[in-house]
């Protein structure tokens, strides 16, 4: 392991009153890595994403991006450093057009040339199959298309270093899912962008992610390849209860 990972989560804990959502979580993602983050419901996956993106602040521990601590840095500044995220329920701007939804992060994250932004959005809309919907209000899109648009919005950012995806494939039809996987792969290959993907869709995780981190009851239960995870007795127990036998 190199001296400093692109994204380093160091001993992070988060308590909400008496509830411990994350306990001493440590995670290191190297440049170019696509990491899966899986675990049963209530394992603290979304909380961990919130802690990394800055929506929540940790009770203990810290998060570093390219070696620099993100302690006390608000979400918009993390975004400007290239740390973006998506939400389980897409946070789009419903009455704004699909294209405007893409131009917003482009302009907010340092792109000042509207024409270049338009070209970029044209290209991404074409590749994601949303081109004919470019001038539609985003709220007219189907759930899957909204999830896709949300993902694509992050790709408008030139300086994207690390992209946190919270359940990007939930409720998305297979065709759009394929498009999303292609876009993620392509961006990762071209720019060595790090992805941390929370998902319950094991086939997709297996396809995309070289390594997987398993979270259970707020702690890191296991880390390894998908094959190792599938063989791990404790992971299977955590997911299915102890009665289950293969």
């Amino acid at each position: 392991m190199s001296s400093e990972a692109l994204l380093a989560v160091e001993g992070v804990s988060k308590r909400f009153g008496g509830l411990v959502a994350n306990q001493d979580v440590t995670l290191r993602l190297e440049r170019g890595e696509i990491r899966g983050l899986i675990g049963p419901n209530g394992a603290g996956k979304t909380t961990l994403i919130n802690l990394i993106s800055g929506e929540e602040s940790p009770s203990a521990g810290e998060v570093r991006l390219e070696g620099r601590s993100l302690l006390g840095i608000p979400p918009f500044q993390r975004a400007r450093r290239g740390l973006l995220r998506t939400f389980q329920v897409p946070r789009l701007f419903g009455t704004m057009t699909v294209r405007e939804n893409l131009l917003l992060p482009y302009l907010a994250l340092g792109g000042r040339d509207r024409r270049a932004g338009r070209r970029r959005s044209d290209e991404l809309l074409e590749r994601s199959g949303l081109a004919r919907l470019a001038e539609e209000p985003a709220r007219h899109l189907s759930g899957g298309q909204q999830a896709l648009l949300q993902l694509v919005a992050g790709f408008m950012c030139d300086g994207l270093r690390c992209y946190l995806l919270d359940e990007p494939f939930a409720g998305v039809n297979p065709l759009i899912k394929e498009t999303m996987i292609d876009l993620i792969r392509d961006h990762n290959r071209r720019w060595s962008t790090v992805f941390l993907i929370v998902s319950h869709e094991m086939p997709v995780i297996r396809e995309l992610c070289s390594r997987v981190t398993v979270l259970a009851a707020g702690r890191v239960l296991f880390e390894g390849t998908m094959e190792e995870v599938a063989r791990s007795r404790e992971v299977v127990d955590a997911y299915l209860g102890r009665e289950w036998t293969p």
Binding site: S53, P74, P75, F76, A79, L84, R91, F93, L109, C157
Partner: peptide
Amino acid sequence: QNRIGVQTAG
């Protein structure tokens, strides 16, 4: 429309 979304967008 979305105060959280707009911050995430930078």
